[in-house]
Amino acid sequence: MTKIETKDVNLFYGEYQALKNISLSMEENSVTALIGPSGCGKSTYLRLFNRMNDLIEHVKITGEVLIDNEDIYRKGINVDELRIKAGMVFQKPNPFPKSIFENVAYGLRVNGYNDKSMIEETVVKSLKQAALWDEVSDKLNKSAFELSGGQQQRLCIARALANSPSIVLMDEPASALDPLSTAKIEELIHELKKNYTIIIVTHNMQQASRVSDRTAFFYLGELIEYDLTVNIFTSPKKTQTENYVTGRFG
């Protein structure tokens, strides 16, 4: 079932065109990887889905961006609600300077929930889903900054999951982490995809091949190829794609 789709989307930062006619659709409960060299538009594309591009000046978007068949850029859409539906994890772990518990609870409090037991329950559930519970269950009141980088990133994942999104947007979630933490996060993604639709931007092709079902290759704002990950990595259709995945350029 198609969960996310873009139709002929173009995005301009002022005069500069960052996305050119991108049409792409993603299935529910799947992992889609966006790969391509730096500056090819993959992060920009990712940020369409929670309208984080709105925070930048002089951004113009044409085309349709559909989640559950609804254009999320049409007038009247509540952006804050959209961001509950599509959670985001950033490249550099960015836990708030609060306790571990309060970090995860933040999203709930933002959206007006203050039932103590419900918040507690959700925090525990999210930490378990992010495979962090065992490591922090005895220190929920400690500062989030006392955690290691890999743990902080999993905390950010838990924080995003607390809002019960249906989509998780990951912008190079492991690029700032060591290999062991990266492996943990990748295993996490395998688990999460059972219940969430995940889009992950990564400049690490091996990561894309390990975790994703489908891969989209971007270059200079264009979508060059989009296919099942196995096909992209065993027999890509476009030469450009092959050159990129074999490391011959980019």
Binding site: Q206, R210, V230, T234
Partner: peptide, 9 residues
Amino acid sequence: CEYIIALYN
């Protein structure tokens, strides 16, 4: 085997 080599190195 091909898939495993391609996807998982």
